[in-house]
Design a protein around this nucleic acid. Sequence first.
DNA 1: CATAATATTCTAGAACC
DNA 2: GGTTCTAGAATATTATG
Lengths: 203, 203
Amino acid sequence: MVDHLELDKVAPFLIKLFEIVSSPASDNLVCWSEHGESFKIVDRTKFAQDVLPFYFKHDNLRSFIRQLNIYGFQRCQNSSGRDRTMEFFHPMFTRNGMRNLKDIKRGNQSKKNDTVEDGVDEVEQPQAKRPRVDYSTFKTDVARLQKNLEEFEHDLKQHTLQVQQKLAYILSALDDTPGAVQQPPADSEQRGSSPELSAGALL
Amino acid sequence: MVDHLELDKVAPFLIKLFEIVSSPASDNLVCWSEHGESFKIVDRTKFAQDVLPFYFKHDNLRSFIRQLNIYGFQRCQNSSGRDRTMEFFHPMFTRNGMRNLKDIKRGNQSKKNDTVEDGVDEVEQPQAKRPRVDYSTFKTDVARLQKNLEEFEHDLKQHTLQVQQKLAYILSALDDTPGAVQQPPADSEQRGSSPELSAGALL
DNA sequence: CATAATATTCTAGAACC
DNA sequence: GGTTCTAGAATATTATG
């Protein structure tokens, strides 16, 4: 497990964007949405003034949004319509999905392979109507979340294993020096030994 | 965090079922499907003979399937049609979704007839019309996965907190007994310090 | 230095109210 | 008509060989 993230393959804008959104320091101006599937700009003007110039060479909200669009982000209408906050979304840009950053590509190369049969010529048809919701994306979403969750679990297992080993080692070392340690700090609430992580015993 | 799983609110059958499917010992007879979204019985007869009586008071596959139907499971047609394996599915019964077991209620409150009914040695039903994919389920899937992921994160934070506390305790104890411990066991593989868990520093 | 990739700004098209 | 979101296009900046 060297580098799942492959940050060097990710566009600088996306790295910065992830930092901006994730940084707790600016959570009052920009932050992840409740479920971490989108992010929102709470205060446009302050965000543009205080955050943007720290990461980019401008303090222009339009330029920032232009970049978002270039990378395929979409603005989502927050339920409370009269809200001044802006909310943006990209299927591969999620709080727990830093791994998927490398799948976000620049430019509008997203909507190419929809149908395959019209092998004749690709005349730009007016395409009068756009369908409401593209349900096909749900499949992708499910698969992506599933994959993330599994990798997350795997990582956690590895992590837990390491901690376990180290703790066991340290404790055994402490056993050899009696009198040093009295009693382990009783879990005041007895939180169930360890959180119940999936079905497998992780601790 | 007392008990996220609330196992006492989950029907015994579902608990047993989860154990049966998850147990690696019987993976050759019954196991999760590839993505953990359904489970399949590989060998019907051996499963009935060797597994069922260990969990239930019978060795009858029909009774087992009857229970599945009562709890709203649906049989899914596995792609390789001529397969003797049976595959069952419930939106709230997944490998990583033990938490959702409590949402599985008894009785066919949904609507459909038990299409799985007595599907034991049944001849392959004509199944003239195979309805297309029900996209509405994807929303449920996404919501469920999302929920799982969030609870997973929460649990992980708790876990980390505990480890931190214990480590702090041990370290403070070590300060009182210098020379007791030499060196922590070097991570032979150095698996990247700790898996990259979201963006926030969890350790 | 040449070239490509990315960033920034401005403007226009399309959809919606 | 106005508003909002997205895309086109032109220029500037940076990265890379």
